[in-house]
Amino acid sequence: MRTVVPVVERVVETPSTITLRFDDPRTARPGQFVMLWIPGDDELPMSLAYVGARKGVTVKAMGSTSRHILDIPVGAPVGIRGPYGTSFDVSPGRILLVGGGSGTAVLAPAAEAALANGSTVTAALGATTRAELLFEQRLRSAGASIAIATDDGSAGERGYVTKLVEGLLAENEFDVVWTCGPEVMMQKVIAAARPKHVEVVCSVERHMKCALGMCDACSLGPYHVCVDGPVFPADRIASLPEFGRSKRAPSGRSVPA
């Protein structure tokens, strides 16, 4: 069911990213998403960056609707349906988290839950520049160790976060890697983890309409990302011809990713 609730907090996370908090008592697990309706504008899938009773979505300005979301003030009504989809298994383990850009939004609540369960978490965070790093402080205070890469070298290592991943995998033992970001990035993470036989779990995005596993908008090979995902074990999706290469446009046409 859909509920319409007011935004109760608005947090500027980076120059291009904000978090909207709202109260919604429904149970949600880290990795799940909601359909966020901006009345008068679009309704978009957004991962839950906070999964408790005071939920939150962390939105990066991309196209017209997400830019509009950045301007939404406290008190404004938004529509919420969900939570939908699969989640991360947060049972205790040694976890490497690899987030590119706003991909870190979905990993943060999973990391917090895993740390609370006694896991160790190392977070490799990538961003274009220092100011765009997302949830570095949040993850640090939850107890994760942090490694950083920025495209311009303004923080951490210069270059892509995938460069850090190879080193981290070589020097540490991990049970699992959780990753969310551009599919080319996730492909590199999968490739880096394969020789070490470390399991990789990805959160992927596809165009969504119903979010109920019905309309087929979000199909990815034999899967529907809205119900079979968005969180997938990499071995289920890495070899699909679409992964990292194509996605479906709103019309259902296959277009380059």
Binding site: M1, W37, E43, C210, A249, S251, G252, R253
Partner: peptide, 29 residues
């Protein structure tokens, strides 16, 4: 021709007794 269909929200789901949709005939053509 390809059609994107209507913008979201395209679905209003009720408790299992029914559902409202206005997809707007999205199709790849």
């Amino acid at each position: 021709e390809p059609r994107d269909g209507y913008p979201n929200p395209t679905i209003e789901a009720y408790d299992t007794w029914g559902m409202l949709n206005a997809m707007g005939l999205p199709n790849p053509g």
